[in-house]
Simulated scan of single mutants.
Amino acid sequence: MDTTQQRTEAPDLPYNVFAKACPSRGTLEHVTGRWGGLTLGALYEGSLRFNELRRRVDGVSEKMLSQTLHALERDGLVHREAQPTNPPRVDYELTPLGRGVAERLLSLIHFVEGRMDDVLESRRRYDDTRGAL
């Protein structure tokens, strides 16, 4: 077994995200996709209604947010609570599993935000030496 396989395979775990057919890959895509990560991060602050969430996640379309919420709900990360009122009220909140995922994502988000000066400087150097794309 080469070094790459040793690093990516976890023999004590029943799932391996690096395997093409592993169901964990789909969940990872839902969590780390642009809208999934931002939605989980926004819901970490507390329960939000659909339009509140859409305003919080600047730039997401109604269709994409709806699809994202369905995927996250299906994966057990988001709970959808429909209130029988007129007009209907629907609230979204993180499940305990979703909260754990969001905590880890927010740690990464804060790290990236804290290092953006370094990233922007790196982009500038890259563009200066290779030409802006």
Rank of each mutant, 00 (worst) to 15 (best):
Asp2Leu: 04
Gln5Trp: 05
Gln5Tyr: 07
Gln6Cys: 03
Gln6Ile: 07
Gln6His: 05
Glu9Asp: 14
Ala10Tyr: 12
Pro11Lys: 09
Pro11His: 08
Leu13Pro: 01
Pro14Phe: 07
Pro14Leu: 11
Tyr15Ile: 13
Tyr15Met: 13
Tyr15Cys: 11
Tyr15Gly: 11
Tyr15Lys: 09
Asn16Gly: 15
Phe18Ala: 12
Ala19Ile: 14
Ala21Ile: 10
Arg25Leu: 15
Glu29Thr: 13
Glu29Cys: 10
Glu29His: 14
Glu29Arg: 15
His30Gln: 13
Val31Thr: 03
Arg34Lys: 09
Arg34Leu: 09
Gly36Met: 06
Leu40Lys: 02
Ala42Ile: 03
Ala42His: 04
Leu43Lys: 06
Gly46Ala: 08
Leu48Cys: 10
Leu53Gly: 04
Leu53His: 04
Arg55Thr: 13
Arg55Asp: 15
Arg56Cys: 04
Arg56Ser: 09
Val57Ile: 08
Val60Thr: 07
Ser61Met: 01
Lys63Ile: 06
Met64Tyr: 00
Met64Asp: 12
Ser66Asp: 04
Thr68Pro: 02
Thr68Glu: 03
Leu69Asn: 04
Ala71Glu: 09
Glu73Asn: 09
Gly76Asp: 11
Leu77Lys: 12
Leu77Pro: 06
Val78His: 09
Glu81Tyr: 01
Gln83Trp: 02
Pro84Glu: 10
Thr85Cys: 01
Asn86Cys: 01
Pro87Asn: 07
Pro87Ala: 07
Arg89Phe: 00
Arg89Ser: 00
Val90Leu: 00
Asp91Leu: 00
Tyr92Glu: 00
Tyr92Met: 00
Glu93Val: 03
Thr95Arg: 11
Pro96Lys: 13
Leu97Trp: 12
Gly100Phe: 11
Gly100Trp: 09
Ala102Arg: 06
Arg104His: 11
Leu106Cys: 08
Leu108Met: 14
Ile109Pro: 01
Ile109Ser: 08
Phe111Leu: 14
Val112Gly: 03
Gly114Ala: 09
Arg115Glu: 15
Met116His: 05
Asp117Leu: 07
Val119Ala: 12
Glu121Gln: 12
Arg125Asn: 07
Arg125Trp: 05
Tyr126Pro: 01
Asp127His: 14
Asp128Ile: 02
Asp128Thr: 09
Thr129Lys: 10
Arg130Gly: 00
Gly131Val: 02
Leu133Pro: 14
